[in-house]
């Protein structure tokens, strides 16, 4: 049983990390703020989600697992809003320029 869970963890975290690497690459390669944001938001959400999902079996307790999910939810929430803010300020600066 633990073996299956471990394999699951390794697989999920690996895929999650893969998404992060993609996001980092996109961040470096894309030309402007908006496209970079686009890449980051999509990939970060999935990446972090997968890592948290993969770590759930290792959390050890229900409280620990709940905390992990809370972390993920908070990042989802603040990430979505901060992305909005950055996008708006990028657009504003574009108009001013």
């Amino acid at each position: 049983m633990t073996l299956i869970l471990d394999v699951f963890t390794i697989a999920a975290v690996t895929v999650g990390v893969f998404f992060f690497v993609i996001a980092a690459l996109a961040f470096l390669r894309f030309p402007d703020g908006l496209t970079r944001l686009h890449a980051l938001t999509k990939v970060d959400n999935v990446g972090l989600g997968l890592i948290v999902f993969g770590l759930l079996p290792q959390a050890g307790s229900v409280m620990g697992a709940l905390k992990l999910i809370c972390v993920w939810l908070l990042v989802q929430f603040s990430g979505a809003i901060v992305t909005q803010l950055i996008a708006r300020s990028t657009r504003r600066e574009g108009q001013e320029a």
Binding site: S78, I81, V82, Q84, L85, R88
Partner: peptide
């Protein structure tokens, strides 16, 4: 006043 920021 930014609606998104206020929401946050």
């Amino acid at each position: 006043r930014d609606s998104v920021l206020i929401f946050l």
